[in-house]
């Protein structure tokens, strides 16, 4: 069975490529033949031409830079804080008993709903965006880290204890690696959420970044083509960064964990 599935892996890519090309072709044709009004949904070629006319590479690079800086910094700190709190809540019962209910209380609130409060607390500048993206990463990671800690096979801990490990060394050398697969899932989800939150925050209150770039184009009555290119750019960025994080996770735990 295994050789068969490898056989299909090659054709998967080809078929997927064909599918993607077909989809782009269908889009192009429907806009060219007037099936869809190019003024509201331009074909890919028109959109790219419009974008090339109205945007300089410098503008795009500048907005891209700000978006990436925001999402990476917010995500990094949010994920680190989430992992630390989640691991501590899973390891130290007393801390867990107090921290968990508070987290569970706040968790159902979507990160975007924090935007007004973030502005009240931190003003309209960068810190409020950072805070929202931080939350987007924090909640999935803290939940996953806690669950990972709670579902560690107790035999692993006992086995380590027979070698005299206890306290912080036991936590760092056995418990955290054992919880790593769950933690990794949370990190992946957290990245997706952070990214979605970034775009929303930039749409709602920002003066630079990719989200700002497209909403500004719309507010100034610019070209729909630019908006379409911007959307695709954000999508591609999300896809690439997600794949990169997936690959990094695989390098981290893939050698001993199946997924």
């Amino acid at each position: 069975m295994k050789p068969l599935s490898r056989l299909s892996a090659a054709s998967d890519l080809t078929l997927g490529l064909i599918g993607a090309i077909l989809a782009v072709a269908a889009w192009e044709i429907s806009a060219r033949t007037g099936l869809v009004d190019p003024a509201i949904f331009p074909s890919p070629s028109l959109a790219i031409r419009a974008a090339a006319e109205r945007l300089t590479a410098e503008t795009v690079a500048d907005n891209l830079f700000w978006s990436l800086l925001r999402v990476f910094s917010g995500f990094l700190l949010g994920a680190l804080a989430g992992a630390a709190v989640g691991i501590a809540a899973g390891w130290y019962r007393g801390f867990g008993a107090i921290a968990r209910p508070l987290i569970e209380l706040l968790r159902p609130i979507p990160p975007l709903a924090w935007i007004p409060l973030a502005i009240i607390w931190f003003g309209l500048g960068e810190p409020s965006k950072f805070f929202i993206i931080f939350l987007g990463a924090f909640f999935p990671v803290v939940t996953a880290a806690y669950q990972g800690m709670r579902s560690i096979d107790p035999m692993l801990l006992k086995a380590a204890q027979t070698f005299g490990l206890s306290g912080v060394p036991l936590l760092l050398r056995v418990a955290v690696p054992a919880a790593a697969p769950d933690l990794a899932t949370g990190v992946r989800i957290g990245w997706g959420l952070s990214f979605g939150v970034l775009v929303a925050a930039e749409l709602i209150a920002a003066d630079r970044g990719l989200g700002y770039m497209i909403i500004n184009e719309r507010n100034t009555g610019g070209s729909v083509g630019v908006i379409v290119v911007g959307i695709l750019l954000i999508g591609a960025l999300n896809l690439i960064t997600d794949a990169a994080i997936g690959a990094a996770i695989k390098r981290w735990i893939g050698r001993w964990h199946g997924a």
């Binding site: 599918g19 909403i215 719309r218 959307i231």
Partner: peptide
């Protein structure tokens, strides 16, 4: 499934709210 897989992955990656400016035009 194989034909549509990359397309679906991409559409899922498109940040939903980034569509807002376009959908307002529509």
């Amino acid at each position: 499934d194989k034909l549509t897989a990359p397309l679906i992955v991409f559409c899922r990656s498109v940040a939903t709210l980034s569509l807002l400016p376009l959908v307002i035009v529509w």
